[in-house]
Design a binder for these strands. Structure first.
Lengths: 129, 129
DNA sequence: GCTTGATCCTGTAGTGACTACAGGATTTAT
DNA sequence: ATAAATCCTGTAGTCACTACAGGATCAAGC
């Protein structure tokens, strides 16, 4: 059993974030030492590492929690996991498309910029009625 | 001079958002009718439309405010505008790259999924020590 | 035994950019 | 006269943390 600082180091999840996950019920309340300090088992650290990986993959915290629950539930519902991941992938793809739209628009707006024209072409486009 | 609802319709900025911009000092306080209701001029609506376009291009509210200030300052500093836009474009490109990384990782993780294997391959990867 | 620094605790408030009420006043249309 | 729409102020909620404040405890070195 290790202290919260060591659990943070081993899992990659920050100390304050671990306490936040506990408050939010994302992870179970850990054991406590006689001095009231939190004590984490290897399984606790495993849960935190799992959550960290989900977050790094862009899953929302509630999706990460759902995946964790699926992972700990006896039946490893691969289909459920896959569906969740597919939905997330589609949202990632939509975000990429949206950002590419932004990039194209910005690129076009700034194209005629910095040519020393009297009125900045980007600003006039943004001002258009 | 028009009421806030009409200003919202004409600018595309929501009523609550307009009041929020006013509270935050993004736009000047508008005129008021005798009954204390806000009254917007064509210039006010123009400012809101300008901000809406900046936000739709992904600029932060403070960047949008900076662009608005540049737009209203006498000297249309095209170079400043361009620099701001370039910085924003780079952040957009970084976000695209990050999301593409996510997409690739998700795609790889789900590749072997839904094959009816005993243990879901995505979950086991997320659980790895 | 004492000091110093590291670590831990609880609880609260801040972030960005809105959004959603609550509870009330006034205006417009029927 | 009444009903529906619009407006007002003020506060709280969203997401996922992050940053304190203010204190307690612990470990290491002298």
């Amino acid at each position: 059993m290790i202290a919260i600082g060591e659990a943070a180091r081993q899992s990659g999840v920050g100390i304050e974030t671990i306490r936040y996950y506990e408050r939010e019920g994302i992870v179970p309340r850990p054991a406590r030492a006689a001095n009231n300090r939190r004590l984490y088992s290897a399984q606790d650290v495993g849960r935190l590492r799992f959550l960290k990986r989900c977050r790094d993959l862009g899953f929302s915290l509630s999706d990460a929690k759902a995946l964790l629950d699926l992972s700990e539930g006896g039946a490893a519902d691969c289909a459920d996991v896959s569906a969740l991941a597919q939905r997330h992938m589609e949202s990632v793809r939509r975000k990429i498309a949206e950002l590419q739209r932004l990039e194209a628009a910005l690129s076009e707006l700034t194209a005629n910029c910095a040519e020393g024209s009297v009125d900045c072409p980007m600003l006039s486009r943004l001002r258009m009625a």
